[in-house]
Design a protein around this nucleic acid. Structure first.
Lengths: 198, 198
DNA sequence: AGCTACCAAGCAAGCGCTTGGTTTGTAAAG
DNA sequence: CTTTACAAACCAAGCGCTTGCTTGGTAGCT
């Protein structure tokens, strides 16, 4: 268990411990099937005490999502900054996203993808705005590659296909298996820039 | 609205109308946030009357899933039978799956993908068995292509990437847009057999 | 007569959340 | 070094509401 968010030091405050426990439970059972009593029990307090830290159950969900988006947007930025060539940047982006999705922030990311409609309208919009920033980083890199002729198809569509491939990975990828994360990143990369044989 | 299942004639019985309405609501709000009162209201009966047709709310969900898996497994079989070359079969499979996922059975398929953990253990297993049959059809076709050298990577992994790409499509594909379903199928096909440029 | 389809009413359980009060850690005031 | 003050963290109890589902009976078609 544990790990969940892996944002440095977040687990040390009561609020952080609640967020981690909630992310874990939300992924396992879904937001609706997780009760505030479940969350409370898994950090060893009474259910009512939760509302000293969060105004509502939905607040917890939103906090999980907000933290994980911010954290992983920063990770994308670092990935891009560490590379110079567009192709190198794309590989770094794919690696970073896989790391988010099946690696250290896996639980919170899964929650982000599967439980977003449990948010009210306002917060769905806020989450969407944060996601738009994240997506723009991808589109910039893909557009650069596209202009230099690395692939033919519409960058928007390519990004959607990439989202699908990485987003499905938690359902099958085995972190202890023989296929490493970087191996998978290269396989996915080849679906874009086309270095695989035929 | 409507369409939902599109299994011939299923909408004509009270049970069929309930299944269609349920599939629609389950996709919109999720299983847990859909009440039996919602379902009843959308076909114009009282909530208690539902239990004349189904033993439980979960029964409705399972019925939706079972029908849509069976229906689309048959569709895959027809797609394969209509083609002779392995590559033609793969293209037909991709088209068929896209048709399932963003076409006529879109609502029920989305429910199948997103709400399977709302089932009890027994039924999750049953659903998994049905899915295994479906997946075997894919693996047979991919293995055939692989042995004849059409692509290099592990067919299992390729299938997973394909699942991701098609499964994500409902989140962005616009059936009224300029990109047709067959266009998209060809774009996805090229990620496997590698006919795109570089 | 009997079956399918339904209604009207409501029950028991579980839910998110509130309330009023108690403990605990910390740090300035005496 | 002790006392006082205070806020953060938590408990015990339970309220009001919604939920899935049950029950006993009725309408209508064959």
């Amino acid at each position: 268990m544990a790990e969940s968010l892996a944002i440095n030091g977040i687990d040390d405050s009561p609020r952080g411990r609640l967020l981690s426990a909630a992310a874990h439970l939300f992924r396992d059972k879904g937001f609706d099937r997780t009760t505030v009593r479940d969350i409370a029990a898994s950090v060893g307090i009474q259910s009512g005490s939760i509302f000293h830290h969060f105004k509502s159950k939905e607040d917890i969900l939103f906090a999980v999502m907000e933290e994980v988006i911010q954290f992983n947007t920063d990770r994308l930025r670092r990935a891009i900054a560490a590379e110079v060539s567009p192709k190198g940047q794309l590989r770094a982006l794919i690696r970073a996203e896989l790391q988010s999705i099946v690696g250290d922030t896996a639980e919170a990311m899964t929650v982000l993808v599967t439980e977003w409609r449990c948010l009210g309208e306002d917060r769905q919009r806020k989450a969407l705005e944060l996601r738009a920033i994240y997506e723009q980083l991808w589109l910039d890199a893909l557009n650069a590659l596209h202009t230099q002729g690395a692939f033919r198809d519409d960058p928007f569509i390519v990004r959607r296909l990439l989202t699908g491939m990485t987003g499905w990975a938690p359902n099958w990828f085995d972190r202890d298996g023989s296929l490493t994360l970087d191996d998978l990143a290269d396989i996915i990369l080849a679906r874009v820039v086309g270095e695989h044989d035929r």
